[in-house]
Design a binder for these strands. Structure first.
Lengths: 263, 263
DNA sequence: CAGTGGTCTAGACCACTGG
DNA sequence: CAGTGGTCTAGACCACTGC
């Protein structure tokens, strides 16, 4: 209510808060607040790793109680869009510097954690602009023939080539992406996407299959042809469920496995 | 505080609420309440599909505010231990009759949803008591040689054999499990476990690999030997993270895939 | 209609962080 | 110390269910 029909505005002149609720169907106040915060997040008003205003301040801005803001932020935190730190503030989530690196990579060594084998070595085989095939276009919500950036690379852990992957990105958003960027950046590739292109991947959907390595794949992963590989097709989405990356990885699973927790 | 040091007891004589907090380290009140509710759930005081007492009633019993009970139940609902239904009550979650059937089975047909191919046909190849190998014992937190029930079966979708799986269950808890129960029960096997053995699986951990079918596996799944299969090793746990089932499934992924959502 | 979960508020106090 | 997120309360009212 307070958002849709604000009482005599006080801070409106200063901040222009209270955008049109469009054709808003009914929803709880805290959902509306969540939506307003989301808008600021995707508009880039608050950038990754930055602090967002305190709960008290947001409550004042939106003219609701702190509890209502709190519930909105609770959901954003549950969605991994934001990270709360007691005593410090609430921060826009990022794929970098967060100690939850490699959030989307669920391949782990059979024994021990990922840290035991050190950082991955990236070998970029290819990075070029091409035109989207029908299949790629469908996945990325583009039209066939639209420009896309295609990357092929091999990731090695402890010197062993383990992942062969092919990545497709919308050409207009990722204009100017170079093989050097893909190879040289320290930390997760998704962190580089945030920093260089302002694109933050929010969630992803994976389709997993078992396949047999063809001759080329076998060579790149130092295997015999026909060896079983895990095929992981990932569609990564940014705010508003907008697809922003299509990736197909072939994982060796002789000394690693894909770990998944169900609940 | 209210739980640890209850004021002059009123309902204690009637209900005996306020079990010893043991060596309780400090934790928020709502966490303590969550723990108390959890105790009732795992003790079987409230059984699957039954309603638990209302928030108001629990608040009165535990001598805290409704909001505190609410937060405790919120977390239990987030953990899928309990299901809230506005206007009706809060119910103990179950693998049956919940329209989230097959919560742990992430294999879906490439096109369309699971309903399009009808229910799975179960073919039980084997169901017998054996002694736990070192590996099985380790997974189930038993000792080598302890009795376990071993089941082997094939699941077919639309007439096509798709999953070959081997299941190990602690022999003492699942004493008397028969092939008829494994085959005949309508609905998820996990629902049968709840009904017949009072064991509710709360969460699970899966390790996924790509493997090549051996001669026997290929025959049972109507494939050529060496065909790539998804190996899904699942450890299912009940309350208190107690392991209760070890399962190794081999999935055909020529017309199905393992679907996973990351966020 | 009464009873349930769901929302919202206002205020108090606690726990943690940093200057 | 002030500022932040985290907990807890008490009470009001809304939305949904079933009798």
């Amino acid at each position: 209510m307070a958002v849709a029909h604000p009482p005599p505005p006080e801070t409106d002149a200063a901040g222009a808060d209270a955008p049109a609720p469009t054709t808003a169907a009914f929803s709880p106040l805290y959902q509306q607040i969540k939506g307003l915060i989301l808008q600021r997040l995707q508009s880039g008003e608050w950038k990754p790793a930055e602090a967002i205003p305190s709960e008290m301040e947001l409550a004042a801005r939106f003219r609701v109680s702190q509890g209502t803001v709190r519930k909105a932020i609770d959901e954003l935190a549950a969605d991994n869009l934001v990270v709360r730190r007691q005593g410090k503030g609430t921060f826009v989530a990022t794929h970098a510097e967060q100690h939850v690196r490699y959030r989307f990579l669920k391949l782990v060594p059979d024994s021990g954690d990922r840290d035991s084998e050190g950082p991955a070595h990236r070998d970029v085989l290819e990075c070029r602009r091409v035109r989207a095939s029908a299949e790629i276009a469908r996945g990325l919500a583009l039209r066939t023939g639209d420009p896309v950036v295609q990357v092929r690379r091999v990731l090695s852990f402890g010197g062993v080539p383990t992942i062969l992957e092919e990545i497709w990105l919308p050409g207009t958003t990722f204009k100017g992406l170079t093989a050097e960027q893909m190879a040289g950046y320290q930390g997760p590739t998704y962190a580089m996407f945030e920093l260089e292109f302002g694109v933050r991947m929010v969630r992803a959907e994976e389709k997993i299959r078992a396949v047999a390595a063809d001759a080329q794949q076998a060579r790149l992963l130092a295997l015999r042809e026909g060896a079983p590989l895990l095929s992981v097709e990932r569609l990564s989405l940014t705010y508003n469920d907008l697809p922003m990356e299509l990736r197909r990885g072939l994982y060796r699973t002789d000394s690693h496995h894909y770990r998944n927790d169900l609940n």
